[in-house]
Structures are given as C-alpha cells and as structure tokens.
Amino acid sequence: MTPPTPLLELRDISYTYPGTAEETLSHVNFTLTDERIGLIGANGSGKTTFFQLIMGLIRPQSGELFFQGKMVHSEKDFQELRRTIGFLFQNSDDQLFSPTVLEDVAFGPLNMGASPDEAKEISIKTLEKLGLKDFEDRITHKLSGGEKKLTALATILSMQPKLLLLDEPSNNLDPATRERLINILRGLDQAHIIISHDMDFLASTCAQLYTIEHRQLHRCDQKQVHSHEHLHPYGDKPHQHGT
C-alpha cells in the first residue's frame, strides 16, 4: 500500500530576500504528516517567511512545492492552493480591508462562487462560532487588536480551508479569549500549523513541534525537547507538551 499523498510538501526550498546577502531559509524540507503542528523559533528566524513561501506570496530561488501531490509553480496553481489553505497574518490590520466585519468575512466565500445569501449565512455562522455574534456591522478598522485577530480568523475559516497557517494567533488576546481560541482550534477538523512564542498555547493545540533554527526547519523529537534547551526558549517555565 502506498501512503496517502500529503496535502503539502516542500523539497529543498531556499529563499533569500532581495537585497540581502544571506539566505533566510536554506534547503528546507517539510512534509505535512501531522495534523496539529506548532512552529517555534527566535524572532527573525524565518517563520513568517516559511508561511509566505507556502502561500506563494514570495517565490523561492530554488526548491519545489507540492500540493496534494502536484507541483505548484504558476500563479494559477497557487490560486488553487489558496482556496484550500488559510493564512492568518501576524498583523491583522493587513488582513481586514472591507468596511464592515460581515463584508470582510463574506469576501472569501463570494470569490469562491457562493451567492450573496449563502456567503452571508456562512459568515454569520463563522462569526458566531468565534464568539463574535452581533459583530456583523462593526467597522473593521475600529475594532480592538484582539477583536481584529478573531475577525481575521473568521475571514479565513469562512472559506472552509483544509489547512490553517496561523501566525501568532494568541497575540493580543485576553486570557478568556485565548482559552476560547484554544477550544475552537481543538474543535476544528482542519489541520493547522501555528507559529507562536506561547508554549502553553502550543502545548494545548498542537501534537508536534517544529522549530526553525540556523535557516533550517527541524522536527522536534518530543522526548528530547527538554534536553535541547536551544530549541526551547521557554523551557524554564512550567509547561507540558501535547499528548
């Protein structure tokens, strides 16, 4: 029996930002086998860059990207991929662009061919699920930081993606909202990769940790994480890993 094709695979991807001398990511290999992945790494280590490469927002100088077993290359291929993978930006201000919350959440479904009524229904349901009931008519640029983050998450969930790439989703959230987000993420069927510096958050939402270090992506060996202190900047705080 052949194993099922992974949703996503990166082979030997290298990326250098234009105008910089050093590679930000160098020969990165990654296959999405686990459903719930946490990604940690120092500031500036290239975590956001990794997500942008997956979404085709920046293109690697070398290496290949496979989506559902097929090589992704042209803008058209990426359009296909973007319907299936949702990307939550580190800065929600960049993600919300419609005047009202409802319009923003419905933007994705409308582009994917839903009728206005369907789009509205999906959006209202998604907002409700995130505890944003009655937010429909709020003005997006007047929301608080945490509300923006949840709304941005709603704009992605309304497209019903199969994989979520979340760039620091727990930033700006108060403890209660953070707890709610954890429960929401645990309840979702989608696979996800979460970038976070919040180890407890990752422990409760992810089963497998990866780290970016020295321009490369490493899969953390669960049993050895504690002895590898460099992989684990928050190791001194009491915490537990996902089970």
Partner: peptide, 8 residues
Amino acid sequence: QAMLLRGF
C-alpha cells in the same frame, strides 16, 4: 496579498 489569498 490578503485579497489574493482570499480568492480575489
């Protein structure tokens, strides 16, 4: 980019 990501 955010618009492209959402199928614009």
